[in-house]
């Protein structure tokens, strides 16, 4: 395994550390690879360590009893996941799945404590990383709790649909998120919910409104 020191330095956890310190930390890192779709962490299981994405992308998500999924984070190279149980001693708070082939760098829980003791700069970095994550999650909680996002998405669909004579504008999920004042992940979930309720059909690159009246009822439903 050849871990690039430049890459370690680019990880927010290790920002500000010199080559000698990074060399010491490198010795504590283990590498793990996963294929597309592979679950790399399962919610509720004991935490084995903290992970950084070295290459590829990982999605961190919760699953409901009915199998519905809510993405919490899309983790890109240099970013970490499973931070919380490493620090609070609990189980994995969410599952993580490889979205394509991924290489992960992990540090076992006991070794994370050693790093924090030996390099106080890392502790300061961890505070910043966790603060960023809290801010992201607070925003997601706000969207999911207070905004009638499904109604807003339904309204956007009705307003932006082509009238049969002229096509309406083509919209990405990111654009719909901007219009609804929410996150892209919440739009994806809303579209799936609208499909489950029989109001729309997701047909590859088309969103087909199959029941206009149902869509109107969803728009008018109290939040």
């Amino acid at each position: 395994m050849a871990i690039q020191l430049e890459f370690l330095q680019s990880i927010p956890y290790f920002s500000g550390l010199g080559p000698a310190e990074l060399h010491s930390i490198e010795k504590l890192i283990f590498e793990k690879t996963a294929e597309r779709g592979e679950i790399v962490l399962l919610e509720g299981e004991p935490a084995d360590g903290l992970y950084f994405v070295a290459s590829g992308v990982v999605k961190v998500f919760k699953t409901s009893a009915e199998g519905k999924e809510q993405i919490l984070h899309i983790v890109r190279p240099g970013e970490s996941f499973n931070d919380v149980p490493v620090f609070d001693g609990g189980s994995n708070p969410a599952s993580a799945q490889a979205m394509g082939p991924v290489t992960l760098y992990g540090i076992r829980k006991s070794n994370v404590e050693t790093v924090l003791r030996d390099y106080p700069q890392v502790a300061l970095n961890v505070i910043r990383v966790l603060a960023d994550k809290v801010r992201h999650l607070v925003s997601l909680v706000e969207d999911l709790s207070f905004k009638h996002v499904i109604g807003r998405v339904a309204k956007i669909l009705l307003e932006q649909a082509g009238d049969g004579k002229s096509p309406g504008p083509r919209l990405t999920q990111q654009e719909m998120a901007g219009m609804a004042g929410t996150a892209r992940e919440v739009v994806g979930r809303s579209l799936k919910a609208l499909e489950e309720q029989g109001a729309v059909r997701l047909d590859r690159h088309r969103i087909v409104i199959t029941d206009k009246e149902a869509l109107k009822e969803i728009i008018e439903a109290p939040s």
């Binding site: 979205m99 649909a161 082509g162 096509p167």
Partner: peptide, 26 residues
């Protein structure tokens, strides 16, 4: 292309757009 839109979701710079056409089924 199966239009899963994952490429759009993971792009850190917004360089890929997977736009949907919205139509009403008569």
């Amino acid at each position: 292309c199966g239009w899963c839109t994952q490429c759009e979701a993971v792009c850190p710079t917004g360089a890929i757009s997977c736009a949907f056409e919205i139509v009403i089924e008569e």
